[in-house]
């Protein structure tokens, strides 16, 4: 792989994968059923692999993961949101894996710098998207309780979805087309799951921006504190 991948773009995509992988890792030992322990860990491992591939093209993967300050991370706010109940985790997966699948699908078929990474990732992400869709159907069209939980989760995370379609400099994509296809796909899945597409705003009202500009939500700082603590406690040590 050549070092021509634009650094800021690789950080944005790499941080998305790194942070979501971390959140999914928090499920270990807490999943609703054993089979799902295995499934969530598979997704987390795929994402961690993607993160390492992307970050190591920008610099030392561990320095980037463990020694950057919160404001230097370029991930979407969506992926840093706490797990919440299983419905929140699935809603986050649905929104993000649909985005990642469409994006990597397009990048893989092109000849840009990200094509090789995307070609590997798209197979993994395809499965993540399927997993999220299957669960969205079951939670949405399951019991009254699960329907309520899933609807609330979709709404709670809706306002983090607008940020996904801000063009990332260095990622050569039809961003408007991506948004249209994402909306169509998510609308279709939610419809089949008897859920209503949320109507609220899709971004926070703050001109300073969001995750791609290094502006994150409060839970992210605590997540990083936990993630980086041990590494930072032993400067220069090897593990």
């Amino acid at each position: 792989m050549t070092a021509t991948v634009p650094a800021q773009a690789a950080l944005a995509l790499g941080d998305d994968a790194l942070v979501l992988s971390h959140r999914l890792g928090e499920w270990a030992g807490h999943a609703p059923v054993l089979e799902e322990e295995v499934a969530l860990a598979n997704i987390a491992l795929d994402l961690l692999g993607q993160a390492r591939l992307l970050l190591s093209q920008v610099g030392d993967e561990d320095e980037l993961a463990y020694l950057r300050e919160e404001r230097a991370f370029r991930n979407l706010q969506l992926v840093e949101q706490p797990n919440g109940d299983f419905a929140h985790t699935i809603a986050r997966q649905l929104y993000f894996s649909t985005y990642q699948d469409l994006m990597y699908g397009e990048l893989a078929s092109g000849d840009g710098e990200f094509a090789p990474v995307a070609a590997k990732a798209v197979k993994e992400v395809d499965y993540h998207r399927d997993h999220a869709e299957q669960w969205t159907l079951r939670l949405g069209d399951g019991t009254e309780e699960s329907h309520g939980r899933m609807q609330r989760a979709c709404e709670a995370l809706w306002r983090f979805t607008g940020e996904m379609f801000q063009p990332v400099p260095g990622v050569d994509l039809d961003w408007a087309g991506l948004e249209a296809r994402w909306t169509a796909s998510v609308t279709s899945v939610l419809g089949r799951a008897t859920l209503t597409v949320p109507e609220g705003p899709r971004t926070g009202a703050w001109a300073a921006g969001a995750g791609r500009q290094g502006l994150h939500t409060e839970p992210f700082g605590r997540m990083l504190a936990e993630m980086q603590h041990l590494h930072r406690s032993h400067p220069g040590a090897s593990w």
Binding site: E35, A39, D130, Q134
Partner: peptide, 15 residues
Amino acid sequence: HAPDAEMALRNARDL
């Protein structure tokens, strides 16, 4: 264990 065939296939793949 799985609720239906579709999930059984996916769980089997993962496991």
